[in-house]
Design a protein around this nucleic acid. Structure first.
Lengths: 112, 112
DNA sequence: CCATATACCTAAGAATTTTAGGCAAAAATA
DNA sequence: TATTTTTGCCTAAAATTCTTAGGTATATGG
């Protein structure tokens, strides 16, 4: 990951959430979308992406459909029912993480 | 870290920021403070804490003063000038991370 | 007296990511 | 048209960071 190294541990969450929203996507498309959304700050390396996609598929979070575009293979991933359950948990964790981080790192802000 | 594995990569940031605010602290105190602030969700293991404190000291981010409390050693850490510069960068990264995460994960919110 | 809390530490292993490749088609550019 | 860049898939070794699982020892509360 280019500059920001904090995203460590959140790659699976990013992938699952993106697929939940956008429907099916292929690997390269995910890297471009995340880069675009994060203004170039989250650069998912392929060495991290593809093993993670394979792991999420093996864990039953994603399914794959291979299509031929011209002479080229493209693998579209979709989120499963289990994946949608997983994303709910991961989102709750992410929100808790952000909340606690803000408490830790912005102690000036008064909490109600 | 107990359940949440998202904090990976943020341990150094937490330590530096805490020391910047609270002045000097010792290792065990840091673990208790973080646990208290995060409502028990961030549990820093000692196997992660002490190597990180040593690394930050080696990198010139922290200095140590050893004191004897009764018959027991206590090592107080303080942030250095370089550490304060580092914490500025890390806070900016953290804010960017949180901002991009919210964009990625809460796409319903309209951005101005 | 004994268990728990305090307080330091290290080392092996696990998990996740970077680095550094490989392969090949399609598109852009020179 | 020739060459470079982009697209698109992949793997394996190394690095990073953390967990697990110890070790040592004092202080405190029951």
């Amino acid at each position: 990951m280019g500059s920001n190294q904090l995203y460590k541990g959140s790659l699976a969450t990013i992938i699952l959430k993106l697929l939940e929203e956008k429907g099916r996507m292929y690997g390269y498309q995910i890297t471009q979308e995340v880069k675009a959304i994060s203004a170039g700050e989250f650069v998912i390396t392929e060495g991290a992406l593809y093993p993670m996609l394979h792991k999420l598929e093996a864990d039953g979070m994603l399914t794959v459909e291979t299509e031929m575009i011209g002479n080229r293979m493209r693998k579209y991933y979709s989120i499963t029912h289990d994946g949608k359950k997983e994303v709910v948990d991961r989102m709750a964790e992410m929100e808790a993480f952000i909340r606690h981080m803000q408490t830790l790192l912005n102690p000036n802000i008064e909490l109600a």
